[in-house]
């Protein structure tokens, strides 16, 4: 498991992306469909393999996880973390980009564990 995305929520995606690109000097890397009906803009950071994902969520209907952790096998990691005492507030469920589950840390911060799946390649 490793940290892969840091989500940033905004009501004005253009303004937020401009902040990252113009003020902080980061680059737009592409788009990612993380949540149902919510397209995110990927921002490349100076750390390899770590991206900021800018999401519109004006109604706050979806997750507000602060950190997104990449998993190669979500069911296995979910099971092992649960056995280790981590509190999940939902079971593994299917998202547009793969299988995910969310958990809290002891301070109440929220994390999303996600196994990204490329649905076009197999079979």
């Amino acid at each position: 498991m490793k940290i892969k995305y840091i989500p940033v929520f905004t009501n004005d995606i253009e303004k937020q992306v401009a902040f990252f690109t113009e003020n902080l000097g980061f680059e737009v890397y592409g788009k990612k469909n993380l949540l149902p009906d919510r397209e995110g803009i990927l921002i490349k950071t100076n750390s390899p393999d770590l991206f900021i994902i800018v999401l519109t969520d004006p109604d706050q209907a979806y997750t507000r996880s602060q950190i997104i952790i990449n998993s190669h096998d979500c069911l296995s990691d979910y099971h092992n973390l649960k056995m280790a005492g981590v509190v999940f507030f939902n079971e593994p469920h299917y998202l547009p980009m793969g299988l995910g589950a969310e958990f809290f840390d002891p301070s109440g911060n929220q994390y999303l564990l996600i196994e990204e799946r490329s649905y076009n390649s197999p079979a």
Partner: peptide, 30 residues
């Protein structure tokens, strides 16, 4: 057609079983 999430989950399950996974809770989750 063997595709989508079934493809990924069955391959993960087989990977673990081939390596001797004994944890039935996890197997049943798959």
């Amino acid at each position: 057609p063997f595709k989508g999430d079934l493809f990924f989950n069955v391959n993960h399950l087989k990977h673990h079983l081939d390596r001797g996974l004994q944890d039935e809770l996890l197997i049943n989750e798959y």
